[in-house]
Simulated scan of single mutants.
Amino acid sequence: MPDDHTFEPKTATIETGGTVTWTNESDVQHTVTAYEDEIPAEAVYFASGGFESERAARNRVTEGLIAPGENYEHTFDQPGTYGYCCIPHESSGMVGTVRVR
C-alpha cells in the first residue's frame, strides 16, 4: 500500500523547459510548496494555489490544497535543484526535489 505522505519519486530529474505534474493519489489533501531558499536565484517561485512566496503559501495553506485525484503542474525554465514540501505533512517528511538539467 502506498504511503499517503510521500512524493513519488522523491527526486525527479528533468530537462530544462520540462513540466512536472504532481497527482494526488491519496485520500487526503496535499500541497506542493517550493522552499524559497532551495530554488535557483533566477527561478520562478512555485506552489499549488499559485502563490508568489513561501510565506503566502504557508499563511493561506488551505487555498493551495490539492484534492484526491487532482493535480498541479509547473514548468521549470531554469536549470538547478528545487526543494519543495507538502505543508500539512512536512513534519512527517513529505518533501521532494526536482533536478533540472
Rank of each mutant, 00 (worst) to 15 (best):
residue 90 E to K: 06
residue 5 H to Y: 09
residue 6 T to N: 11
residue 93 G to V: 04
residue 84 Y to D: 05
residue 46 F to H: 14
residue 48 S to F: 15
residue 54 E to N: 02
residue 50 G to I: 06
residue 64 G to Q: 10
residue 27 D to E: 15
residue 78 Q to K: 14
residue 79 P to N: 04
residue 84 Y to T: 14
residue 57 A to L: 03
residue 81 T to L: 01
residue 34 A to H: 02
residue 81 T to P: 09
residue 66 I to N: 08
residue 84 Y to H: 08
residue 50 G to T: 07
residue 31 T to E: 03
residue 91 S to F: 03
residue 15 E to A: 12
residue 65 L to F: 02
residue 28 V to G: 04
residue 44 V to C: 08
residue 15 E to G: 11
residue 50 G to K: 13
residue 93 G to A: 01
residue 40 P to V: 07
residue 78 Q to R: 13
residue 95 V to S: 13
residue 39 I to S: 13
residue 65 L to E: 06
residue 58 R to N: 02
residue 16 T to W: 07
residue 40 P to N: 11
residue 20 V to S: 12
residue 64 G to R: 01
residue 23 T to R: 05
residue 65 L to A: 08
residue 75 T to W: 09
residue 71 N to T: 04
residue 75 T to I: 00
residue 83 G to V: 02
residue 27 D to W: 15
residue 52 E to K: 15
residue 68 P to K: 03
residue 12 A to N: 12
residue 46 F to S: 15
residue 65 L to D: 00
residue 38 E to C: 05
residue 9 P to F: 09
residue 11 T to P: 13
residue 9 P to K: 15
residue 49 G to A: 12
residue 34 A to C: 05
residue 47 A to R: 15
residue 87 I to D: 12
residue 91 S to Y: 03
residue 62 T to H: 03
residue 27 D to C: 10
residue 83 G to A: 12
residue 70 E to Q: 14
residue 41 A to Q: 10
residue 40 P to E: 10
residue 26 S to D: 07
residue 44 V to R: 11
residue 65 L to W: 02
residue 89 H to D: 09
residue 66 I to A: 06
residue 10 K to A: 13
residue 22 W to M: 11
residue 10 K to H: 13
residue 31 T to R: 05
residue 47 A to Q: 00
residue 43 A to R: 06
residue 19 T to F: 08
residue 37 D to V: 07
residue 62 T to Q: 10
residue 17 G to Q: 06
residue 84 Y to K: 02
residue 89 H to W: 07
residue 91 S to L: 00
residue 43 A to D: 06
residue 54 E to F: 00
residue 24 N to D: 15
residue 60 R to W: 03
residue 66 I to Y: 00
residue 7 F to M: 13
residue 26 S to G: 04
residue 88 P to R: 02
residue 10 K to Q: 08
residue 63 E to A: 01
residue 23 T to G: 01
residue 47 A to E: 15
residue 16 T to K: 03
